Deep mutational scan, measured.
Amino acid sequence: MKVTIEENEETGKFTIKVKTEDGEEKTIEIPKENLEEILAKLPPNVEII
């Protein structure tokens, strides 16, 4: 699983794009305050880009 994290400076939010092993892609946008909480919940086999 690969996770790409991009900061949107205009909105102050982060866009998180997840690509699973089977090629499925999902995108979510979260507030900056929630980034550490989300990262802590990721499984250890995740590659963060």
Rank of each mutant, 00 (worst) to 15 (best):
I28Q: 03
E10A: 13
G23D: 02
T20S: 07
P44D: 11
P31N: 14
L42T: 01
P44W: 13
E33T: 04
T11L: 05
M1C: 15
T11K: 06
T27E: 07
G23F: 00
P31H: 12
K2Y: 10
N34L: 14
E21R: 04
I38S: 04
E21D: 10
I38T: 11
G12Q: 04
I16K: 00
T27Q: 07
E6V: 13
G23S: 02
E25A: 02
N34H: 14
I49P: 03
M1P: 07
P43F: 14
T27H: 09
I16G: 00
K26F: 15
F14L: 15
F14G: 03
K13M: 14
E47G: 07
A40W: 04
E33C: 07
F14R: 00
E37M: 13
K41F: 09
M1I: 14
K2Q: 13
P31I: 11
N8H: 09
E37Q: 10
L35W: 06
E25W: 14
E24F: 11
D22C: 10
I30K: 00
E9A: 13
E7P: 07
T20W: 15
I30S: 03
T11H: 05
T11G: 08
E29F: 11
V46H: 04
K32L: 07
K13I: 14
I49A: 04
V18P: 00
V46R: 06
G23M: 02
L35C: 06
I49K: 02
T20G: 11
F14M: 07
N8P: 01
K19C: 13
E7L: 15
G23C: 05
V3H: 01
K41N: 13
I5A: 01
L42W: 06
D22L: 10
T4H: 06
E33A: 11
K32P: 12
E36T: 09
E24L: 10
G23I: 01
I49R: 00
V46L: 07
T27S: 09
P43N: 06
P44I: 10
I28G: 02
K19D: 06
G12I: 01
E9K: 15
M1G: 07
P43D: 07
A40F: 04
L35S: 00
T4E: 09
I48W: 14
M1Y: 09
P31V: 09
V18N: 00
V46F: 10
E24G: 10
K17L: 08
I49E: 09
E6A: 06
E24S: 12
I49L: 09
E7R: 12
E21T: 06
D22V: 04
E6T: 13
A40C: 12
E25F: 11
